[in-house]
Design a protein around this nucleic acid. Structure first.
Ligand code: MN
Ligand code: MN
Ligand code: MN
Ligand code: MN
Lengths: 219, 219
DNA sequence: TTTTATTTTTAGATTTATCTAAATATTTTT
DNA sequence: AAAAATATTTAGATAAATCTAAAAATAAAA
């Protein structure tokens, strides 16, 4: 009952796609995420279905079984714990950790991940504000919203990012926005939905492409 | 010019075999170490020779090129640094680290290994007393001997192990022998070369199978 | 120095994960 | 409801790493 690196990447991709859309995850959507051709995906789906990790109905898309969900969440747990380690202890910045974590998440050793978690002080979130699943696959979900959906003249705190690409994170760094940053929403331009916000006395305008990728919580 | 996980394992195997015997490492010796069939080894040797990582003359065995040696030493550097991390920070004992390090040694990120080294305080040796190669592939070699070749009535310090299998390390744990342990050699039985030694007031007899796997330095 | 044994290489197959091209199913448009 | 477009699956190929069985080379023994 061991999963290969490739299978693990498919499970993770299906899991992430399931966050947006509950079931019937399409072959094409997976192909796009994995960066493989649809025919390759079909082959792998048969394999994952044989292993009871997904429910697969030809032409109708897939969904994770409980077994598959637990496997996926375990990879994500490892990924996020390693990201915390890289930032907290090895001087990585939040835009540098993802690629290395993509490799580290496949290391197989339950002692390793559990000891790592303890060493890090049982962190609840990774450097991008994403929650870290616990040993039993439970995820602490908080009711965050995206900055684009905030109401005017209220104060918010940045608690995460939707897009955690290196490019976007560097943009945020440049404008001194990170997890914990306080943001006051001043105005919304109706034409393009751009926001005028204030961060530490400084006022700036942000396009919707930006604000729809920043998670905040009202203070 | 990237090396696959499998290629890396072959390079490491060839490197370790080269420590005992300088050149002309045989196909069979590699096969035994890798736990593969000789025919599989021959295939891989061609591949490694194509990549200029080894010098290979049909039927005459192989040796690492400088490029291959550096690649091998880099894997070993990572392996040993991770072993230090596991023991120093994640509560692993020296008999538990090897299998996990076998996985971690293949993670590709020069920032990761260099930052890890700094985080660990630039350790010179791993938990088994083996030297950690530096960034440039240099290895600090010390003139250690095996316990079986010591002279009577002299005091030694354990500085490493030749056999670092879990079984052997557990045996050493049971008898309170570890890196740094002081050993006084009292007597040698000529018949079977067994040694009577003294460790912290306690006297014990050890077979040659044991004493030839413990590295010591005279005090 | 032949003969025998061992080692190494080659030839051909297998498994995993991928691809292209073609066939089939589903969805959308007319 | 038929035609067109899109999505998905199948068929057949390829590359990496392995294997078994057979052939060839080298080493050891007679
Ligand atoms: Mn990540
Ligand atoms: Mn993350
Ligand atoms: Mn080791
Ligand atoms: Mn070691």
């Amino acid at each position: 009952m061991t999963t290969t690196l490739t299978e693990e990447n498919y499970l993770k991709a299906i899991y992430h796609l399931s966050q947006k859309q509950d079931s019937g995850i399409s072959t094409n959507a997976i192909a796009q995420k994995i960066e493989a051709k649809a025919s390759s995906v079909t082959d792998m789906l048969k394999k994952l279905a044989d292993k009871k990790l997904i429910s697969y109905i030809k032409y109708k898309g897939v969904s994770l079984t409980e077994k598959g969900r637990l496997a996926a969440v375990d990879i994500i747990r490892k990924h996020r714990l390693w990201e915390v380690f890289l930032v907290d202890n090895l001087n990585f910045s939040w835009d540098e950790v993802h690629d290395v974590a993509e490799q580290l998440e496949h290391i197989k050793s339950s002692k390793l991940v559990n000891e790592l978690e303890a060493f890090l002080g049982f962190p609840t979130h990774d450097p991008h504000g994403d929650p870290i699943p616990d040993k039993d696959g439970q995820i602490q979900r908080t009711n965050k919203i995206v900055l684009s959906q905030t109401t005017l003249n209220k104060r918010y705190k940045c608690v995460g990012v939707l897009d955690s690409s290196s490019e976007f994170l560097k943009y945020l760094d440049k404008h001194n926005i990170g997890i914990g940053t306080e943001i006051l929403v001043l105005d919304r331009e109706e034409f393009d939905q751009s926001l005028t916000i204030q961060i530490q006395e400084k006022t700036m305008v942000m396009s919707k492409a930006i604000t729809s990728n920043i998670y905040v919580k009202q203070l």
